[in-house]
Write a protein that binds this DNA or RNA. Structure first.
Length: 349
DNA sequence: GCGAAACACCTCATGTATAG
DNA sequence: CTATACATGAGGTGTTTCGC
């Protein structure tokens, strides 16, 4: 393992960032798994790094320094955690539903299995269970962990075509339990609707990866749901409450009701007022135009803060990816790049 | 090594079945 | 109809594990 191998994968999480925007596919947000806190943090950072860089590979490395900076912990502690995590992460699995397109299956077409239901509605669900990783290595001397994602995970990160949930990783640092972070991600996904799906107890247990534990619902509620809700409310962005549906005395469903706090609402209106000219609809743009304008855009001062790249060509490459598929990029980045395209170049579209 | 979270075990309350 | 035993779920407390 040499340094050149990671030439396209530079240090991504750096000290001067007050925000760490994270994008995860909704399938991943709602999949069922159980990790330790450190494992989940590492996975979140790695998945996000891979997704944002968009290099199309399924290999990524995270240095102890990156891990320390993102989580605001000491570097020595980050070294220890990465080392421990590398041992256990290989055995971890996650579950999510796969949708078998019955039309395609009947016609014996390839790719009849996907992570989102086909629009025509003729599908069956296959519960699948996969390893997170194909391989992992911890380079003790250099202080980084190298992650090789399994193919299904790579698919979930890069190619779902599914909508993504975005949030700021720094908002989750103060949460010290894995379950709270997972619930926070779910809340972020559903925040605009004001409530999560009404899910059976078993679905909730699946979500937290504790299917075989907590034979008593009361235990599950008290040990998993209540503390997580408390942690999220303490964080200050949302005000969430638990709704439970009962048949007689037996709890059958749970649902999380979500209110944005006043602070958050003010922040949102401020953002939308500050940027009245935001264009929400992205234009069609040809491959030739993408090549031309990405090389122009990468040199603009107004968006230079988006770059973590060592040189202009790799930044231009990143911009080109966003121009090509803005819907699967971080929306804030996409908006800024399209705005710059319209206001600072001769692009007409 | 310390404090907090997770877990296991226990008790209490309430609903249900059965015998008198 | 009522009394009693039994079943199930909610809440309380001591012990272990985990994160830092």
């Amino acid at each position: 393992m040499t340094a050149n191998k990671f030439a396209s994968s530079p240090i991504f999480y750096t000290e001067n960032k007050n925000e760490i925007p994270v994008s995860k596919s909704n399938t991943l947000i709602e999949a069922g798994f159980d990790l330790t806190l450190a494992e989940h943090d590492l996975m979140t950072l790695a998945i996000n790094k891979l997704h944002k860089q968009g290099t199309g590979g399924n290999e990524v490395f995270i240095t102890a320094k990156e891990f320390a900076v993102a989580n605001k912990v000491s570097e020595t502690h980050a070294y220890q955690q990465l080392k421990q995590t590398a041992d256990t992460l290989m055995t971890r699995k996650l579950r999510f539903p796969l949708y078998v397109d019955l039309d395609k299956k009947r016609n014996r077409e390839p790719n009849c299995v996907g992570v989102v239901p086909p629009e025509h509605g003729r599908y069956e669900i296959a519960e699948s269970k996969y390893n997170w990783l194909q391989g992992i290595a911890y380079a003790e001397a250099s202080g980084f962990v190298y992650l090789h994602f399994s193919d299904p995970l790579h698919f979930l990160i890069e190619k779902t075509g599914d909508s993504y949930t975005n949030y700021d990783f720094t908002n989750t640092i103060q949460m010290k339990s894995f379950n709270a972070k997972r619930l926070y991600e779910l809340v972020c996904k559903w925040k605009d609707l004001g409530k999560t799906k009404l899910m059976y107890i078993d679905e909730w247990k699946e979500f937290f990866g504790v299917t075989d534990k907590y034979p008593r619902t009361a235990e599950f509620k008290r040990r998993i749901l209540d503390p997580s809700i408390e942690a999220i409310n303490a964080q200050g962005e949302f005000e969430i409450t638990l709704n439970q549906e009962k048949v007689g005395r037996t709890i059958t469903h749970f649902q999380i009701l979500i209110k944005k706090t006043k602070k958050e609402k003010i922040k949102e209106t401020a953002t939308s007022k500050r940027d009245p000219n935001t264009v929400d609809i992205f234009t069609n743009i040809t491959d030739a135009q993408i090549a031309k304008y990405s090389t122009i855009l990468c040199k603009l001062g107004s968006i230079s803060d988006l770059s973590n790249f060592p040189d202009y060509p790799s930044f231009a490459n990143w911009i080109a990816k966003i121009l090509k598929a803005p819907e699967s990029a971080n929306p804030a980045h996409a908006k800024r790049i399209f705005k710059a395209l319209r206001t600072e170049t001769d692009f007409k579209g």
